[in-house]
Design a binder for these strands. Structure first.
Lengths: 235, 235
DNA sequence: GACCGTTATATTATCTGATGATTAGGGTCC
DNA sequence: GGACCCTAATCATCAGATAATATAACGGTC
């Protein structure tokens, strides 16, 4: 499970150190030479990792000045790694989770509405398949399969909009679903209780009823949000 | 104006080549050695560029197999560079512009509503300032200042939600505003004609009226969309 | 002739050393 | 005291060598 490439490991170490504010915005992270030393890797690995951090908006580099941590507002927050680092840090975890929920509450109902209007035959089948997987996971009581199927369901709805911009929320979806199931105590019960809402989304899309699809998705997401509040994941 | 770092230039060349489907999804781009040769740079520059492309989801690398172009669905479409490359290629420009408009139509009215509910005194001032800049640019007839001020206005509204996730659309905003003004013929007229809608957003936020803010933002964006359709930027 | 393990090979991954470019900071001269 | 120059720290880039890995070619067994 450890990443194959060395530079990815370095990226992870530095990225999470920055996200946890061990190096606060405006300050410089250690020099290439120091990182090589402390991480026990060659210069190329360090440089490639820092280069990626720069492309994620987390640092800026310049000769003599060093590698400076950029203000949080410039970070590419929708990137999977960035999000994971922030979630791991506990520092702004609640805030970020709240923000994700707020954003989902905006985007996903609208996506469901669009899907009801525009989904192709194939795209509807993909949603049906994902829903069937959810039911299956619920029957078998398999939490991992449940997470995966839930994710696939929301992804399939989003794909049915044929809008690549809306696809940018994949990473956020993963985070939410992963956290909901990993922390909520009686997760399978919650999962089963939310099946009906998901089915509502599917059926509304199937009969091309945007309003109903939108409402069903609102119910789906608000259920999740409520459960997260109950388990104090968010306020 | 040219980028300072060599690797950024390399990144640009390869990135736009991929976006224009000179290397279609699933195929391999030239090897490191070939790219060094054809671009006249050292291996480290090529490797850093490819490393960034990988972090943007545009390619996957493996020894012996080479560097393979990933399917479009995995690209980080909200990244400024990725979006610029796609816009430059003309291949899917219309589709992407349409998708951006659709996405804006979803999230910006919602942002305006949230802003009306949550904006702080400072955040409202930022919106007011941006609006004043817009009026100023309209009076002076300065297109560049108009683009900048328009962008600042939408950015200020988005910031007033205090939701970092919604901030991920900065890049998309830039693209839309840049294109609208660079291509529309009588741009300053359009800009002036849309001032009233912007003012409506500002006033609704100032008096903390989410519904009105949402509606005013809908009007603002639909005006823009209409103008883009008239100039055949989108269908 | 089909299947399976072995070997060859192309390509990326990583390390190391050397040189260039940029800029912060201090020192000098008027 | 201010303009200018010099030095040094740090990233940027190149070059060469070796390791790791995955595909492809090969050959043997049944």
């Amino acid at each position: 499970m450890a990443r194959k490439k060395l530079a990815d490991g370095v990226l992870d170490r530095i990225g999470s150190a920055i996200a946890s504010e061990r190096y606060p915005a405006g300050s410089a992270i250690p020099t290439e030479a120091e990182l090589m030393e402390s991480l026990g890797v060659g210069r190329s690995s360090v440089r490639e990792a820092i280069r990626v951090l720069a492309s994620l908006g987390m640092v800026e580099t310049a000769p003599r000045r060093g590698t400076i941590v950029a203000p949080r507002a410039e970070w590419n927050m929708l990137n999977r790694d960035v999000m994971r680092w922030m979630m791991g840090s506990e520092l702004h975890k609640q805030d970020l989770l709240g923000a994700i929920n707020e954003a989902r509450r905006i985007f996903e109902p609208a996506s469901a509405g669009l899907a009801a209007r525009k989904a192709s035959r194939m795209q509807i089948i993909a949603i049906e398949t994902a829903y069937a997987e959810m039911e299956d996971a619920a029957t078998r009581g398999d939490p991992d399969a449940a997470i995966q199927a839930d994710r696939n369901f929301h992804l399939a709805v989003q794909r049915a909009t044929s809008n690549p911009i809306l696809g940018a929320f994949d990473a956020a979806l993963d985070v939410i679903l992963g956290l909901l199931f990993s922390v909520t105590a009686n997760h399978m019960d919650n999962f089963r209780a939310n099946l009906g809402n998901h089915l509502g989304v599917l059926e509304a899309i199937r009969r091309k009823d945007p309003q109903a699809a939108e409402q069903a998705m609102i119910d789906t997401i608000e259920f999740t949000t409520r459960k997260m509040k109950e388990s104090r994941l968010i306020t």
